[in-house]
Design a protein around this nucleic acid. Structure first.
Lengths: 219, 219
DNA sequence: CACCCAGCTCTTGTATACACGGCTTCGGAG
DNA sequence: CTCCGAAGCCGTGTATACAAGAGCTGGGTG
């Protein structure tokens, strides 16, 4: 339920997982969490179930919840699927986008340009998210937009780590430029191919992913 | 939570939705459901949350759960996304499948052939599911297999309705034949294209989808 | 000395009780 | 007659109590 208590608990646990406070494989005890957050076990249980649904934790019957261990291979697979869905979204956007979609996409792109030139990875990270969501919206497929949004959110921590790599920010923006051009030109296949290449982890970026994992492993 | 009570309640509600007992847009009252299934509100709540996670119902804060109304457009969008993911799975399967994957795929295909010739749509429906799962497994991407499985399951009722259309069963099997050939030949692009075409709702099949909806609307 | 079994404890799964927010209905006023 | 508002009721959200299964520990035995 998007209610107050359970939402708060869910977000707190999620943040704790991303921050490394709850290590992968560690047990999440319901009573410990409830005492920690000052609520009863009920909202904690519901939060854990929601996290289980989004794949952040694994619930084993009668044995509690453990933080899932995202191996590099699994993260790679997730980016692979994400690339495919984003490619579809780009293709549909190139075909269907309206004038207001174009305006929103261009505006998001310009915000990315500004933050890329300012050099703040955090600001760029946020604007980058807006950019991708503008593409989802332009696809005019509500279900696709939901799926993309959910996966995007799930990959958020890893994307954030990847952006820290030197020059990745600039390269990302240059790729955006090509993507925008293809969508505005109505070139479905170019939009699909460029978005796919933008998202998928390949070449040097696979090494970046591994190094990001290594960095995260440290305290 | 794959526990006994909540799993049973969840499956019962899901079946009720598919069977049309719970009409789209209708309210699912927690106390009514709990009395009906002879359990307390707690497992009912958890079941509803799981159904909300899989998209079968919508949970509005403080206002209860309602059965989501899948418009034809939305179902079309879901098949569109499914087609994309299956295409990716087929492409990966063509590249990566091992000897045992090939054997499993061929075996599933032969079972489909048998039930197609026997003419039983229910049997074919089941074997068809096995066939697609064999492709997911052959992709050797655990995450992709999970996503495909989840979407497949979500679309199950609509696929079942579609198979009732005359000759669709035979056409489906013929498409399978081409897909198997492409995967066994290691032709990634052919496998992708044929799986996509197999799954997506286009041409006559869009009319079939609409008629299936019309039929389901009746008591 | 190692292995197995039994009892205990700790945690999850379920039930019930309590609190708070929204919806509805009934009454009054314009 | 219609519209607005307040109070009561119904239903969800949260807390707590009870039951049952899984893991652990300690003692006994081979």
């Amino acid at each position: 339920m998007a209610d107050n208590a359970v939402r708060k608990v869910r977000d707190d646990i999620e943040n704790g997982i991303v921050a490394g406070e709850f290590a992968p494989g560690s047990r999440l005890d319901e009573v410990t969490l409830s005492k920690r957050f000052g609520v009863s076990r009920t909202p904690v249980r519901e939060a854990l179930m929601q996290l289980s649904a989004t794949g952040a934790v694994e619930l084993r019957p009668r044995r509690g919840a453990i933080v899932v261990d995202h191996s590099p291979q699994r993260v790679y697979e997730m980016f692979e699927v994400m690339a495919e869905l984003e490619g579809l979204a780009g293709s549909l956007a190139a075909r269907r986008c309206t004038a207001s979609d174009r305006a929103a996409l261009s505006a998001a792109h310009e915000r990315c340009r500004a933050s890329a030139e300012a050099g703040g990875t955090d600001a760029y990270y946020y604007d980058n998210e807006e950019f991708h969501h503008a593409i989802y919206a332009a696809s005019h497929s509500g279900f696709l937009a939901e799926q993309c949004g959910a996966l995007h959110r799930r990959l958020r921590p890893y994307r954030r780590l990847q952006l820290r790599v030197q020059n990745r920010l600039r390269a990302s923006f240059d790729e955006h430029e090509q993507i925008v051009k293809a969508i505005l030109a109505g070139d479905e296949e170019a939009a699909r191919a460029r978005l796919r290449a933008h998202v998928v982890v390949q070449g040097d970026r696979f090494g970046d992913l591994l190094s990001a994992f290594a960095e995260r492993a440290r305290p």
